[in-house]
């Protein structure tokens, strides 16, 4: 396989970034209407090299370096989608999406409904998100709740290479706009990608580890932390079930519910601030659905109601194994 990453013919181990690259390549090959656009996605291959080699192989007409203007990127992607294209746009970092927020919220999310369903907006917006890479301000944020809150958008985040490959395929195939949150600190984590596998539905949650005492649910970069917490808890004799939510809109409440009905306890983990976050919504819904099964209040582990801290403090700020296990202990104390 070429260093730039061609579509894998057989199962192989790929880092998350390469899996996404491979998925974009497959999409570009399969559908001439698919476009990749964003700042530095062409010659440079993206600041994380996720689009490495794509412009070389598919040309500047399909892998487009754009002017440095996020609203312009999303706004023109909408126009391209109206013309019949399927643009996959990159926002370089989480904290840079806000100039495009208006286009995403007032136009991209609502245009299908505005037309009473007569037009479709198959636009994927890739956002490398989350912290843990020692970056400067605006490079480590987790704004997913701001998008999940908006009807008309779908929001997903893979936690591993296989999901990164398949969920990107499915996001591009979706006739709805999808905000694709890429866990940037997991870009280099390797995992098996089998292009002949049959993927789970895009918006389904998956049980990443079976357990019986406490359900721990997370998505994107926090799934790995939760799996490590589950391994540590096992040594202490506690059996954690880890649910990889994968989709923040819609959320697969059924899978979470099934797990909680078994364990009776739920801890939600994300990097984003807990206040009005994804976890808050899940806590409310699961409390409604599982009121008589719950042995403890639903607990959340996540960011604080403070700006994302400077890099020297992010190890303390970000949920880690100890903070997850602390919440697990509190849940078990009831």
């Amino acid at each position: 396989m070429a260093a730039t990453g061609t579509a894998p013919a057989a199962a192989q181990k790929l880092p998350v970034a390469k899996a996404i690259n491979s998925s974009l390549r497959t999409a570009l090959e399969n559908d001439p209407k698919v476009l990749v656009m964003g700042e530095d996605v062409g010659k440079l291959g993206g600041v994380f090299r996720v689009t490495d080699g794509l412009q070389k192989d598919f040309g500047e007409d399909r892998v487009i370096d754009t002017p440095l203007a996020e609203s312009g990127i999303v706004g023109t992607a909408i126009g391209l989608a109206l013309r019949g294209y399927r643009p996959v746009v990159e926002i370089q970092f989480d904290g840079f999406v806000f100039p495009a927020y208006d286009q995403i919220v007032t136009q991209l999310a609502k245009m299908h409904a505005r037309a009473l369903g007569k037009i479709k907006l198959p636009v994927v917006i890739r956002i490398p998100y989350g912290g843990g890479i020692g970056a400067v301000e605006h490079h480590s944020e987790s704004p997913e709740a701001l998008f999940a809150h908006v009807a008309g958008l779908k929001c997903v985040s893979p936690s591993n290479a296989s999901d990164a490959y398949w969920m990107m395929q499915q996001a591009i195939e979706s006739d709805d706009p999808v905000i694709f949150f890429e866990p940037k600190r997991r870009y280099w984590d390797k995992g098996e990608v089998d292009p002949s596998a049959i993927p789970a539905p895009l918006h389904s949650a998956q049980v990443a580890r079976q357990g019986s005492a406490v359900t721990v649910a997370a998505y994107g970069p926090m799934v790995k932390v939760c799996l490590e917490a589950a391994a540590a808890a096992e040594e202490e004799g506690n059996s954690l079930e880890v649910v990889d939510l994968r989709s923040m809109s819609p959320i697969d409440f059924d899978t979470v519910q099934r797990s909680v009905e078994k364990t009776g306890r739920l801890v939600l983990v994300h990097e984003a601030p807990v206040f009005l976050g994804t976890g808050a919504e899940i806590a409310a819904r699961i409390t409604e659905r599982c009121f008589y099964h719950l042995e403890a209040p639903v607990l959340r582990v996540g960011g604080f109601h403070a700006p994302y801290p400077p890099a020297r403090l992010e190890d303390e700020y970000l949920p880690n194994l100890d903070r997850v296990l602390d919440a697990v202990d509190r849940a078990l104390a009831y």
Binding site: D61, S71, G72, V74, G75, T76, A77, I78, G79, L80, A81, L82, R83, G84, Y85, D102, Q103, T106, Q107, M111, R114, A115
Partner: peptide, 23 residues
Amino acid sequence: HLYTIVIGSQVLHATGYAMGVAK
């Protein structure tokens, strides 16, 4: 296209559409 109420948004859509026409 549909009437657009948020001032100026549609000008980008037109530009993107035109980019598609050229493609």
